[in-house]
Write a protein that binds this DNA or RNA. Structure first.
Lengths: 142, 142
DNA sequence: TCAAAATAGTTGCTATAGCAATTATATTGG
DNA sequence: CCAATATAATTGCTATAGCAACTATTTTGA
């Protein structure tokens, strides 16, 4: 089997290229696609723990700790103490963080719109479904 | 638009999960999915320059330099001088490297087989086609 | 009740990813 | 011809990714 026939290689290659474009647009705002994904998730589900956040962005908890460090350094989130469990923090988006998210979201959407140029709605829906099924299959193997 | 609706997020998330599984199987052989992809490409197209190799795996040239460092450290490749251009090297797979590739390839294929469980041939072909089109769209934006 | 086990988060280490600057060599244009 | 430019690879810097070890708490169970 050739490398080009590997679905794994193709998925990662495509993802890498998409990230490159998004990061290119985000760079002027000192933002990265990964930081944005964490910020976006937090905007959607404020008040969850770091552990829960990690699960919701499919990232390692260690990794989320460090991405939150970056976001906190820039004043985009704060770590609230959890009154129910003093081991955990509840990261919370600041007004500056929400503003950043709202400024970046259209950029991200624009890149995606260009990336799926030529695909019709049905194809996009099918693609999402297939990727989701593969992600579920992979998750079961861990 | 919610994060879960972003094709970019979904592609990267799925790729990350697949890499996790592959790396899990490869770890016992001190191999990673990324090192394997570079080694596999070299096995397919021996005698190309590092610059060409980088293009063929869609990785940064800097990154390829360092992945080759790893492979060389393990004796899986050597850097041949290029008689036509003394600036460049022609990385070449050693017998040990080829053996490693052949030992890992079935593992990778097995992970992929489990990952696409439940998808029929037509769906896999369609998925590859759509990803390729998105990758091409993204590449044009750089 | 309270020692043992489990859990949330962090830190240290290594690998991958990409940008900017540097070095060595090749190519080009006056 | 040779100075200016371009190119291949490397190094330095920072961010992302994940494993293992550690700290501080919480939960469990005898």
């Amino acid at each position: 089997m050739k490398l080009d026939d590997s679905i794994g290689f193709l998925i990662n290659q495509t993802g890498r290229k998409l990230s490159q474009v998004v990061n290119h647009y985000f760079a002027a705002h000192e933002m990265t696609s990964e930081q944005w994904s964490v910020l976006a998730r937090l905007c959607e589900e404020d008040g969850i723990s770091q552990k829960e956040l990690a699960a919701r962005v499919s990232k390692d908890q260690t990794n989320v700790t460090r991405i939150l460090d970056q976001l906190q350094r820039k004043g985009l989130i704060v770590r609230m103490t959890n009154p129910e469990d003093r081991r955990s923090f509840l990261p919370s988006v600041t007004p500056e963080g929400r503003q950043m998210y709202e400024r970046m979201a259209p950029l991200e959407e624009q890149v995606i719109a260009l990336a799926i140029q030529g695909l019709d709605e049905k194809e996009v829906a099918k693609l999402k479904e297939l990727l989701q099924r593969i992600a579920n299959n992979a998750a079961r193997q861990l």
